[in-house]
Design a protein around this nucleic acid. Structure first.
Lengths: 248, 248
DNA sequence: AACAGAATCTCAAATAATGAAATTTGAGAC
DNA sequence: GTCTCAAATTTCATTATTTGAGATTCTGTT
């Protein structure tokens, strides 16, 4: 049903995902172990990425991020089609709410996290940009579904091999979401994690969701209501930023 | 002789290279044409990159850079093992010399451009980070060769299938480079392009080159001398920044 | 010098990628 | 609403590429 995915390319990006602050260099041994590949195959991925300047060989057998990856990232930041004001808006909301805030875009597989502003506390809930959330069990997913016409919702379920029964089960929730203008999540997707989400609507379509999220204990009724209000104001501003585009 | 390279991964990065300021979106048609693939294969690469969040689907058939690419780029900028002061140093040199300035690292395939500071003029010579230069015909390549022990130089030629005769031909040049402490290029690699390069030497090894480059007409003897002097001073400072590391 | 472990290379077998052709989608005309 | 058609997406037999076991090379230690 779906376009087959190039598995080598996925693995190459999986390898890049192994870098983090605590691991600024990669060896074939780490790649082989983490991605469950042979040592020879892991080495070949690293050698390929080095040949492409995506990685740089620090010394024999040890690789670090390379200049091309940095350049492609800068290019992505300059060209990606998000409102210019999105990150600043998220930062402002985060300061006002004192919780983490994020924005998601619709994809058929689920809401895609495209920007985050993490709460300032030493330890807080975070999500990585590029993460795709489940559609049926998250506030963001339900907002996107609530914004679709019934036929589009049905086609979505068919396209993603989701049982019509599962879709029918959330229809009452979607009704409530449309009435309230925001969606809540209290542990439905992740235990002990709450979220309040509102849609950014441009030309009758939900083009983004923005959400405040954190631990359940921090999200009582008053916080929820305050968050929903502030998120809605921000969403209205963002919708004006987006305005009419050729994406109709 | 060398580790085989994964061709699918290379093609995926070739596809990413098609974005630029004038082209912020990609279609399968463009990818197919530019990379000489079938329409179906081009679509599959785009779908793969979209599934990996490296691209984002703007609408059916149209793709833009995605959040994961931006994130990986930021990660690369944070983790890549360059001296922290490198870019500032290049910027300062550019201002002093009023020419473009760049830094290269050694790879067996040739000098890899890892940082650039482009001259302020509306039109000036530039190079893209991630570009690998030829080894024998560039000032940077000759500097790296000049800094290798004769046996290492011979092994390099064997490893890269370079004829020993070609290597022997540049030996007198390398001798001159070692005596002067810098290397010149006046159209040897690219017609009408001149470069002055100096090595950044740490623990007896040439770990970087820094170069000023521009059109031939702007690089008279006085400019060359002035550039060499300023580049050498900067190289000495950078070498101290690098200092003793575990890269011995 | 010898040795050992890690990194790199080789190549036959297995698997995945490719592209021609079929199918689906969606915009525009009526 | 239906129909048309170009573009996008999917299918599947064939071909090319990828994989990993094992061989070879490299390098640090003694």
């Amino acid at each position: 049903m779906a376009t087959p995915i190039n598995l080598s390319v996925m693995k190459a990006f999986d390898a890049l995902e192994l870098f983090n602050e605590a691991r600024s260099e990669l060896t074939a041994e780490v790649v082989a172990r983490e991605l469950r590949l042979s040592h020879a195959t892991a080495h070949r991925f690293l050698a390929t990425l080095e040949a492409a300047s995506v990685l740089t060989a620090v010394r024999r057998g040890v690789y670090a991020p390379g200049p091309r990856l940095a350049r492609l990232g800068r290019m992505a930041e300059e060209l990606a089609p998000l409102p210019a004001s999105l990150q600043a808006t998220l930062d402002r909301l985060r300061q006002g709410l004192e919780e983490s805030v994020m924005a998601c875009r619709y994809t058929p597989r689920g809401p895609l996290c495209v920007a985050v502003s993490q709460a300032d506390r030493p330890i807080s809930v975070n999500i990585r940009t590029g993460t795709t959330l489940p559609m049926l069990s998250t506030a963001q997913g339900r907002l996107f579904l609530a914004g679709l016409a019934p036929r589009d919702r049905k086609n979505w379920a068919i396209g993603q091999s989701v049982a019509q029964a599962a879709l029918a089960e959330v229809e009452p929730l979607l009704e409530g979401i449309r009435a309230e203008g925001h969606a809540l999540n209290r542990g439905d997707n992740e235990p002990d994690i709450a979220a309040v989400s509102v849609p950014v609507v441009s030309q009758g379509r939900t083009v983004l969701t923005i959400s405040a999220f954190g631990t359940l204990g921090r999200f009582g009724p008053e916080v929820q209501e305050r968050a929903a209000r502030q998120l809605k104001e921000a969403a209205a501003e963002l919708a004006q930023d987006i305005g009419p585009t050729k994406h109709t």
